[in-house]
């Protein structure tokens, strides 16, 4: 890396490795300390239970003044996550605060898996399905978890 890594990123990384959040792992890339390989286990109380979801997280140059960029690499059927894995989460956009951390972002994403929010959709087709026929939507989500999210 050309520029020196800020102390805050070093401290956050150390803490993520030494004291990981249950059900979440985040490891910095060997060649880029701002790029993290993330795994989130599907929460037990959700249609994603039993799945392991791969994500990528990148800390832009402006971090922590700007939010980290996070994306699902594993295909997932969720009203707030689109085909490209982009996540609709307020704290990743206008509600970002420099007092938030990688840890809090990943916890919020884990919480989003437990509580899909079809009223603030990114994948509009999935959201429509979730609103009109929730049982069917949950069934599809479980199928996708089985097909794509096995470690």
């Amino acid at each position: 890396m050309a520029s020196q890594l800020p102390r805050r990123i070093i401290k956050e990384t150390q803490r993520l490795l030494a004291d990981p959040v249950p059900g979440i792992s985040a490891n910095p890339d060997e060649s880029n300390a701002r790029y993290f390989h993330v795994m989130i286990a599907g929460p037990d109380d959700s249609p994603f239970a039993g799945g392991v979801f791969k994500l990528e997280l990148f800390l832009p140059e402006e971090y922590p003044m700007a939010a980290p960029k996070v994306r699902f690499m594993t295909k997932i059927y969720h009203p707030n996550i689109d085909k490209l894995g982009r996540i609709c989460l307020d704290i990743l956009k206008d509600k970002w605060s420099p007092a938030l951390q990688i840890r809090t972002v990943l916890l919020s994403i884990q919480a989003l898996l437990s509580a899909p929010n079809p009223e603030d959709p990114l994948a509009t087709d999935v959201a429509e399905q979730w609103k009109t026929n929730e049982a069917e939507a949950i069934k599809t989500a479980k199928q996708w978890t089985l097909s794509y999210a096995q470690a």
Partner: peptide, 30 residues
């Protein structure tokens, strides 16, 4: 609450969420 540093002079809007001068400056600039 931004950089974890312990500075002698801090900004506090009355809520006890403190930030150091350098981080507060970055926050304003962004």
């Amino acid at each position: 609450c931004i950089c974890d540093g312990k500075e002698k002079i801090i900004f506090d809007l009355g809520c006890n969420h403190i930030s150091c001068q350098s981080c507060f400056k970055d926050y304003l600039l962004s």
